[in-house]
């Protein structure tokens, strides 16, 4: 085929990539504070979307409120997940904790199905209007919202972790738990914050995505897996890496589907995940790892 599709493929890839990046940022938050790969991250995204839909179509709140409220709600869920399942196991092996998050994600998904049923739900776009034409690509206004949210969230979190006391304490817990404890940081509280923030980031992703993706109880898993690819590709723990990884996975999918085969679209992402793990396990933005700690 000719090159006329290319601008659209790139636009689609970047939009999708921004979503994966948002999910990846959530993975990073928990990982960099606790070393845990939080399999419930996708469920946080799903909950964000479902809460937004509920607030808007069932409680008839104004759209702006319906989009912001879920963030607080899912932060609470995140904190709750930590308080009830991770904290009691604070002395357990990492693998146990990872399995706990798997259990939590299964339970959350099941609960969501009980509450909302198996159907998908619509949410109106944040700003009305026709799609914009740009360099041969048609871009949905909502896509711009997604990209803006991803960039803003990534930047805000990086600032938070680097420049605030709270954030630096969080990083300290990750780098050396005992040392952090010795200088008076309350490690468990930091971990709880990490989970809460991950919940918040997930909810942002969920509600900004809802008008495009029509959320249902089971969207979390697919998004978590792609977001996870993005996080590993960029180098898990690095927010810049997450953004880069997300966009790369998005582009890979879109170009792969555009030029090779739409049937194997998802396989491309997972194949790259495998390749990265086999060849360059610390990711593209080679962040120093601290996996030997535990």
């Amino acid at each position: 085929m000719d090159g006329s599709g290319l601008p659209q493929f790139i636009a689609t890839g970047i939009t999708q990539g921004a979503i994966y990046a948002l999910v990846a940022v959530g993975f990073n938050l928990v990982y960099s504070a606790t070393g845990i790969i939080n399999f419930a991250q996708g469920e946080f995204v799903m909950l964000g979307g479902m809460f937004a839909v509920t607030c808007y179509s069932m409680l008839h709140l104004p759209l702006a409120l319906a989009v912001v409220l879920p963030i607080a709600a899912v932060m609470l869920v995140g904190a709750g997940v930590h308080y009830f399942t991770i904290r009691p196991l604070r002395r357990a092996h990492l693998l146990t904790l990872i399995m706990v998050t798997v259990g939590v994600s299964v339970a959350l998904r099941g609960l969501a199905k009980v509450v909302w049923g198996a159907d998908a739900y619509p949410l109106p776009p944040f700003s009305a209007g026709e799609s914009l034409s740009l360099a041969g690509a048609n871009i949905n206004p909502q896509s711009l919202w997604v990209m803006a949210c991803a960039a803003a969230t990534g930047a805000a979190l990086t600032l938070f972790l680097r420049c605030t006391l709270q954030g630096r304490a969080m990083v300290a817990c990750a780098l050396n738990r005992r040392a952090a404890q010795l200088v008076g940081i309350r490690v468990e509280r930091m971990h709880m914050w990490a989970f809460a923030l991950a919940g918040g980031v997930g909810a942002i992703a969920g509600s900004v995505l809802a008008p495009i993706a029509l959320p249902s109880y089971d969207v979390g898993l697919a998004l978590a897996l792609k977001g996870f690819c993005a996080a590993v590709l960029g180098g898990i723990g690095s927010n810049a890496g997450a953004l880069l990884g997300g966009v790369l996975v998005g582009l890979l999918e879109s170009l792969g589907a555009g030029y090779v085969s739409s049937g194997y679209k998802d396989a491309f992402a997972f194949f790259v995940l495998l390749l990265v793990l086999l060849l360059r396990p610390s990711g593209l933005l080679n962040v120093p790892t601290r996996r030997e700690e535990r």
Binding site: P88, A92, T96, R109
Partner: peptide, 13 residues
């Protein structure tokens, strides 16, 4: 399905 998740978490804890 919820029970599955809860059983796993309870056992681990």
């Amino acid at each position: 399905v919820v029970a599955y998740g809860v059983i796993l978490v309870l056992f681990l804890i």
